[in-house]
Amino acid sequence: MNDIPQQLVNGLTNGSLYALIAVGYTVVYGIVQLINFAHGEVFMIGAFGALSTWFLLFRDNTSVWVLPVMIAGAIAASVATAVIMERIAYRPLRHAPRLAPLITAIGISVFLQEFVRLFYGTIPGFPSAKSKIPFPAIDGVTGSPFHLGSVVIQRPALFTMGALLVCGLFLGWFINKTKQGRAMQAVSQDPDTARLMGIDVDRIIVIAFALGAALAAIAGVAQGLQNNNIDFKMGFMAGLKAFTAAVLGGIGNIQGAVVGGLTLGVAEALATVFVTGAWKDVFAFGLLILVLVFRPQGLLGARVVDRA
């Protein structure tokens, strides 16, 4: 029982990671009512983008100033992947039956995983991605943990939680204070009327994909720092957990994605205390099923999506 505070910290760390990814599911759903099941791979590509940036520019340099450049590389890779995906795979299916984009998403997912697995190592100077690749340790951001009484706080955990905080504040500002953010809200409330206002809906959809991808990229870096390694499969479980978090909070609701992510992380961690760590995934997806059955609108309700 006395490891509850420790498990809370672990839960909030994992939860922050889920939340960062969940925002991407929810923003896209809020705008086009599409579950982008390839979003987990966008997260994975972010981690590989950061690693590639490091290989290309820094190799062996682990100074802390390298990290922002790696994050920029991660965001560039993820955003490019998401935007291209939207343009060539989802846009042509905008008016197709719902099953079509869903199946497409699964196809893209498999494609991206296999692409990274088979192609990454063929780039000169890059290691094979057929198994785990070590992720660089960054001075100050990885290394010896902090102690708070009996609670151990890993440095990358602070990075992850800090990233969620910064991204959350940025999102709040973007959605509420910028012209494009307001346009985004308008499209999620009533796309046809938004067009009558002069809003280019296609453009807003691209922005939604890009925004979600940027946050997933940061999460990819966070996961690399936490685990010291990345692999082509890392997006699968993280994506499913983040999707669960988005549904938990109310799909389409951005604040819900954050609340859902943190709730899921903490719930899993507590399951580790009271049941056993091996059961935490069972617990997480059991929670998903319960929510879908008893409160399909999620904890905060799918506010951004419903129509008047």
Binding site: A183, D192, L196
Partner: peptide
């Protein structure tokens, strides 16, 4: 979205105001 910039506005059937926005936010849109 380009037609409105030409000087042609449409107030649609059923009003279609943005329900979760304030009056001023609707007007600004």
């Amino acid at each position: 979205h380009k037609i409105v910039t030409l000087g042609l506005a449409h107030s649609p059937e059923g009003r279609r105001i943005f329900p979760r926005m304030t009056v001023e936010e609707n007007l600004r849109l």
